[in-house]
Protein backbone atom coordinates (compact mmCIF):
# COMPACT_ATOMS: atom_id res chain seq x y z
CA UNK A 1 0.00 0.00 0.00
CA UNK A 2 2.88 2.34 0.81
CA UNK A 3 4.32 1.65 -2.62
CA UNK A 4 1.03 2.56 -4.25
CA UNK A 5 0.83 5.82 -2.38
CA UNK A 6 4.25 6.91 -3.59
CA UNK A 7 3.35 5.88 -7.13
CA UNK A 8 0.30 8.10 -6.96
CA UNK A 9 2.32 11.01 -5.66
CA UNK A 10 4.83 10.56 -8.43
CA UNK A 11 2.16 10.79 -11.08
CA UNK A 12 0.14 13.43 -9.29
CA UNK A 13 0.23 16.00 -12.14
CA UNK A 14 -1.15 13.53 -14.68
CA UNK A 15 -3.57 12.05 -12.20
CA UNK A 16 -5.68 15.18 -12.11
CA UNK A 17 -7.99 13.57 -14.65
CA UNK A 18 -8.90 10.78 -12.24
CA UNK A 19 -11.95 12.52 -10.85
CA UNK A 20 -15.30 11.00 -10.04
CA UNK A 21 -16.27 10.64 -13.69
CA UNK A 22 -13.21 8.66 -14.69
CA UNK A 23 -13.38 6.61 -11.56
CA UNK A 24 -16.92 5.57 -12.41
CA UNK A 25 -15.85 4.65 -15.93
CA UNK A 26 -13.13 2.41 -14.55
CA UNK A 27 -15.51 0.84 -12.05
CA UNK A 28 -18.00 0.21 -14.85
CA UNK A 29 -15.40 -1.51 -16.97
CA UNK A 30 -14.49 -3.70 -14.02
CA UNK A 31 -18.12 -4.68 -13.49
CA UNK A 32 -18.45 -5.54 -17.18
CA UNK A 33 -15.47 -7.87 -17.01
CA UNK A 34 -16.99 -9.58 -13.98
CA UNK A 35 -20.33 -10.17 -15.70
CA UNK A 36 -18.64 -11.42 -18.87
CA UNK A 37 -16.69 -14.18 -17.12
CA UNK A 38 -19.49 -16.67 -16.38
CA UNK A 39 -20.82 -16.06 -19.88
CA UNK A 40 -17.54 -17.11 -21.43
CA UNK A 41 -17.32 -20.22 -19.27
CA UNK A 42 -20.58 -21.68 -20.55
CA UNK A 43 -20.67 -24.96 -22.41
CA UNK A 44 -20.67 -25.16 -26.18
CA UNK A 45 -24.20 -25.20 -27.60
CA UNK A 46 -25.38 -28.25 -29.52
CA UNK A 47 -25.73 -26.44 -32.83
CA UNK A 48 -22.06 -25.59 -32.84
CA UNK A 49 -21.14 -29.07 -31.64
CA UNK A 50 -22.97 -30.52 -34.63
CA UNK A 51 -21.15 -28.26 -37.05
CA UNK A 52 -17.88 -29.02 -35.33
CA UNK A 53 -18.46 -32.75 -35.43
CA UNK A 54 -18.44 -32.60 -39.22
CA UNK A 55 -15.35 -30.46 -39.51
CA UNK A 56 -13.01 -31.09 -36.61
CA UNK A 57 -11.14 -34.38 -36.86
CA UNK A 58 -9.63 -34.56 -33.39
CA UNK A 59 -12.24 -34.26 -30.69
CA UNK A 60 -10.31 -34.61 -27.44
CA UNK A 61 -10.52 -30.90 -26.74
CA UNK A 62 -8.40 -29.10 -24.22
CA UNK A 63 -8.95 -25.55 -23.03
CA UNK A 64 -6.46 -22.80 -23.62
CA UNK A 65 -3.66 -21.83 -25.99
CA UNK A 66 -6.09 -19.89 -28.21
CA UNK A 67 -6.46 -16.13 -28.00
CA UNK A 68 -9.51 -14.62 -29.67
CA UNK A 69 -9.48 -10.87 -30.19
CA UNK A 70 -12.91 -9.39 -30.71
CA UNK A 71 -14.52 -6.10 -29.79
CA UNK A 72 -16.65 -6.38 -26.63
CA UNK A 73 -19.56 -4.81 -28.43
CA UNK A 74 -20.06 -4.89 -32.18
CA UNK A 75 -22.29 -2.03 -33.25
CA UNK A 76 -22.69 -3.47 -36.70
CA UNK A 77 -22.82 -7.24 -37.15
CA UNK A 78 -22.16 -7.00 -40.88
CA UNK A 79 -18.46 -6.47 -40.33
CA UNK A 80 -16.79 -7.60 -37.14
CA UNK A 81 -13.01 -7.77 -37.05
CA UNK A 82 -11.70 -10.92 -35.43
CA UNK A 83 -8.18 -12.10 -34.76
CA UNK A 84 -7.28 -15.59 -33.64
CA UNK A 85 -3.86 -16.51 -32.34
CA UNK A 86 -2.75 -19.97 -31.25
CA UNK A 87 0.31 -20.54 -29.13
CA UNK A 88 2.54 -22.93 -30.99
CA UNK A 89 6.23 -23.25 -31.86
CA UNK A 90 5.19 -23.79 -35.53
CA UNK A 91 8.02 -26.21 -36.27
CA UNK A 92 7.90 -29.13 -38.70
CA UNK A 93 6.90 -31.58 -35.92
CA UNK A 94 4.71 -29.32 -33.86
CA UNK A 95 2.52 -26.84 -35.66
CA UNK A 96 -1.07 -25.78 -35.90
CA UNK A 97 -2.73 -27.44 -38.89
CA UNK A 98 -6.28 -26.11 -38.70
CA UNK A 99 -8.11 -23.25 -37.05
CA UNK A 100 -11.89 -23.60 -37.20
CA UNK A 101 -14.28 -20.78 -36.29
CA UNK A 102 -17.93 -21.02 -35.37
CA UNK A 103 -20.62 -18.58 -34.28
CA UNK A 104 -23.39 -20.19 -32.23
CA UNK A 105 -26.04 -17.55 -32.90
CA UNK A 106 -25.74 -17.37 -36.67
CA UNK A 107 -28.19 -19.18 -38.97
CA UNK A 108 -25.10 -20.86 -40.42
CA UNK A 109 -22.72 -21.30 -37.50
CA UNK A 110 -19.69 -22.45 -39.45
CA UNK A 111 -17.64 -19.39 -40.37
CA UNK A 112 -14.31 -20.56 -41.70
CA UNK A 113 -11.35 -22.88 -41.47
CA UNK A 114 -7.77 -21.71 -41.91
CA UNK A 115 -5.26 -24.42 -42.69
CA UNK A 116 -1.72 -23.52 -41.73
CA UNK A 117 1.63 -25.23 -41.68
CA UNK A 118 5.21 -24.93 -40.46
CA UNK A 119 5.88 -22.23 -43.07
CA UNK A 120 3.73 -19.71 -41.27
CA UNK A 121 6.06 -19.05 -38.36
CA UNK A 122 3.21 -17.77 -36.27
CA UNK A 123 -0.29 -19.19 -35.95
CA UNK A 124 -2.27 -16.00 -36.13
CA UNK A 125 -4.95 -15.07 -38.62
CA UNK A 126 -7.37 -12.18 -38.88
CA UNK A 127 -10.59 -11.80 -40.80
CA UNK A 128 -13.90 -10.00 -40.73
CA UNK A 129 -17.05 -11.90 -39.96
CA UNK A 130 -20.83 -11.49 -39.96
CA UNK A 131 -22.77 -11.91 -36.74
CA UNK A 132 -26.55 -12.15 -36.58
CA UNK A 133 -26.99 -11.41 -32.88
CA UNK A 134 -25.33 -11.29 -29.49
CA UNK A 135 -23.64 -14.63 -29.17
CA UNK A 136 -20.51 -16.62 -28.58
CA UNK A 137 -17.66 -17.34 -30.94
CA UNK A 138 -16.12 -20.78 -30.65
CA UNK A 139 -12.68 -21.45 -32.06
CA UNK A 140 -11.09 -24.88 -32.31
CA UNK A 141 -7.48 -25.48 -33.29
CA UNK A 142 -5.84 -28.74 -34.28
CA UNK A 143 -2.12 -29.40 -34.17
CA UNK A 144 0.12 -31.81 -36.05
CA UNK A 145 0.69 -33.71 -32.79
CA UNK A 146 -2.94 -34.75 -32.70
CA UNK A 147 -3.96 -32.28 -30.01
CA UNK A 148 -6.94 -30.03 -30.26
CA UNK A 149 -7.81 -26.90 -28.36
CA UNK A 150 -10.97 -24.93 -27.89
CA UNK A 151 -11.78 -21.39 -26.79
CA UNK A 152 -14.92 -19.31 -26.58
CA UNK A 153 -15.54 -15.61 -26.55
CA UNK A 154 -18.81 -13.78 -26.04
CA UNK A 155 -19.69 -10.74 -28.08
CA UNK A 156 -22.57 -8.28 -27.94
CA UNK A 157 -24.03 -7.34 -31.30
CA UNK A 158 -26.18 -4.23 -31.52
CA UNK A 159 -27.30 -4.63 -35.13
CA UNK A 160 -27.42 -8.06 -36.73
CA UNK A 161 -25.55 -8.69 -39.94
CA UNK A 162 -27.06 -11.78 -41.53
CA UNK A 163 -29.96 -11.92 -43.94
CA UNK A 164 -32.10 -8.84 -43.93
Amino acid sequence: MVGEATEQEKFAPEQKGLDRRNFLKMAGAGALVLTMTPFAAEATPTQVLEAMGKVVKQKNFKEGRIAITLPQIAENGVVVAMKVGVESPMTADDHVTDIHMFADGNPLPYIATFQLGPHNGKAEVALRIRLAQTQKIVVAAETSKGESFIARQGIKVTLGGCGG
Binding site: V78, Y110, A112, L127, R130
Partner: peptide, 16 residues
Protein backbone atom coordinates in the same frame (compact mmCIF):
# COMPACT_ATOMS: atom_id res chain seq x y z
CA UNK B 1 -8.65 -20.89 -46.03
CA UNK B 2 -12.12 -22.34 -46.40
CA UNK B 3 -14.81 -19.71 -46.12
CA UNK B 4 -18.52 -19.98 -45.42
CA UNK B 5 -21.27 -17.33 -45.50
CA UNK B 6 -20.22 -16.11 -42.05
CA UNK B 7 -17.33 -14.24 -43.66
CA UNK B 8 -18.08 -10.58 -44.33
CA UNK B 9 -18.36 -8.93 -47.71
CA UNK B 10 -15.05 -7.66 -49.08
CA UNK B 11 -13.16 -10.34 -47.19
CA UNK B 12 -9.99 -9.20 -45.49
CA UNK B 13 -7.51 -11.75 -44.27
CA UNK B 14 -4.15 -11.53 -42.66
CA UNK B 15 -1.74 -14.27 -41.76
CA UNK B 16 1.99 -14.78 -41.26
Amino acid sequence: AIWHPGVSANPYTSFY
